[in-house]
Design a protein around this nucleic acid. Structure first.
Length: 136
DNA sequence: GCCAACGTTGGC
DNA sequence: GCCAACGTTGGC
């Protein structure tokens, strides 16, 4: 089991859209590093869902429901997609500013490489965020 | 709306 | 293979 973080501009595809769809194809990745990460994702892996530009916070988590396959929205065989399925909306969100000031989260791609849209998390990083988002 | 960071493209 | 020019992303 591995842990990931997926970034989405809510103007393009928001958590609310996923809440209606339940499962969606994660397409449009046109960056090699993000693509390489996509290809490493296994069915059952968990990904935190981050809203960029508007919100700038983590709102919930999803499960990888189908592993990487060729992006059907293009003939270009370089690009891949996965399917994700809604898992859980968090009771509490965590903002980018909170993550930036959390000493345990200084190495996550969100902070170190702000343009990367698919990135791995360590187990410790994942649970640090998960626990904050589920605090009573 | 601005701009830093970064990726891509194309001329040489 | 280098690098300037350009485009895009995303935080502020």
């Amino acid at each position: 089991m591995n842990y990931w973080l997926l970034k989405s501009d809510p103007e393009t595809y928001s958590w609310d859209s996923l809440a209606k769809d339940k499962t969606t194809i994660w397409d449009g990745i046109r960056n090699y590093q993000a693509r390489n990460n996509l290809q490493l994702m296994k069915k059952g892996d968990i990904a935190l869902f981050y809203h960029s530009n508007q919100g700038m916070n983590i709102v919930g988590q999803v499960i990888v429901s189908k592993e990487a396959y060729n992006d059907p929205s293009t003939d270009d065989l370089r690009w891949y997609v996965i399917d994700i399925t809604l898992d859980q909306k968090f009771p509490k969100t965590i903002a980018l500013s909170e993550m930036k000031s959390n000493s345990k989260l200084q190495n996550i791609g969100l902070i170190k490489q702000s343009r990367l849209s698919v990135m791995p998390l360590t187990i410790d990083e994942y649970f640090e965020i998960y626990n904050i988002c589920n605090l009573k």
